[in-house]
């Protein structure tokens, strides 16, 4: 005879949860298909993938592809470029939205504030292709705005796109231009939730607005800053790859070849695609990333109370 109690228990559980499960089942299968099934394909990094043999049937080669990558001249170059590009973006780009948010928070003219917000959020919605098109137009040696300006001031025209050493700055500052407003939203929301009684008390004590920025506003948004810093540090190996690919040209590969563009070139864009080798590079990248975010989070948790988990 079936255990009545267990049966009753299971039936109750199903009655309570089946509707919500039915709702989530489609998105869940979606995630499993498009995010977890590819993880099964990761094994080709340790194999010599051939289309005829399939993922499972290809021969195991161990760490050969990894060793090949570590020994190649590309290894140092792409790792250096990836890290340099990310660090530059982070150091130059991280404080800008914070400063913008604080300035907006201090602005008393509501209309002006709204205008600045409307305008600075807008570039976020421009596509990378269009943004890079704009950059190329503005920096163009013959017809570009910036070179017109330099020439009008009596200078020599500069070949911004053709000289590798400008690549990093172009990449970073176009990114800041595009995203500073949008990234500021999160800080603006953190600032708007600062307890107004703190400000009132400080005003009674005669604190100036500038003092209140440093002793009330900034300390109140430190947790938000820390969380975003962790997220940013953790994704240091993930360079905005679509943008790099667009900005890349033969004259700047010395600076612009990053891990993700190398994966694309070795894996899909080349005449002789090396699926396994390319996947191995991808795994190297993901693993470094994974440990970075765990590491940074651990440090943050030890130092203060804020952390992701």
């Amino acid at each position: 005879m079936p255990d009545n109690k267990t049966y009753f228990y299971i039936k109750k559980w199903i009655d309570k949860n089946w509707q919500l499960t039915l709702m989530v089942i489609l998105p869940l299968s979606f995630i499993i298909l498009f995010h977890y099934v590819p993880m099964y394909g990761i094994q080709i990094a340790f194999k010599n993938y051939r289309a005829v043999d399939g993922i499972w049937g290809s021969k195991w080669v161990g760490f050969d592809h990894f060793i090949k990558f570590f020994k190649s001249y590309q290894f140092i170059r792409v790792t250096r470029n990836t890290i340099m590009l990310s660090l530059y973006s982070l150091i130059a780009g991280f404080p800008v939205p914070i400063i913008l948010a604080i300035a907006l928070n201090c602005c008393k003219n509501i209309k002006f504030k709204k205008t600045v917000q409307l305008v600075t959020y807008a570039p976020h919605f421009i596509s990378v292709v269009v943004l890079m098109g704009m950059v190329i137009q503005i920096l163009s040696p013959k017809y570009g705005l910036l070179n017109n300006l330099i020439k009008a001031l009596g200078g020599e025209e500069v070949l911004f796109m053709a000289e590798g050493r400008y690549f990093r700055s172009i990449y970073v500052w176009s990114g800041i231009w595009q995203n500073m407003g949008f990234s500021a939203i999160i800080y603006i929301s953190a600032l708007s939730s600062v307890d107004p009684t703190l400000h009132e008390a400080a005003i009674v004590d005669g604190a100036s607005r500038l003092k209140r920025v440093f002793y009330i506003d900034i300390p109140c948004i430190v947790p938000t800053i820390v969380i975003l810093l962790i997220l940013n540090l953790g994704s240091i190996m993930n360079v905005g790859f679509e943008k790099v690919l667009l900005l890349q040209n033969p004259t700047n590969t010395e600076y612009s070849e990053v891990i993700s563009t190398l994966i694309y070139k070795q894996g899909l864009a080349s005449a002789m695609p090396q699926y396994s080798y390319s996947t191995a590079i991808g795994i190297f990248n993901s693993l470094v990333n994974f440990f970075l975010i765990v590491g940074v989070n651990t440090i943050a948790r030890k130092l203060g109370e804020t952390s992701l988990w």
Binding site: H35, V37, P38, M39, I44, G267, L268
Partner: peptide, 22 residues
Amino acid sequence: PIMLIFTFTMFFGGGLIPTYLL
């Protein structure tokens, strides 16, 4: 458990080639 399955994909994925093969 479902939340965990979802968020894990934010930190780790199959990568370009395995996705292409899929």
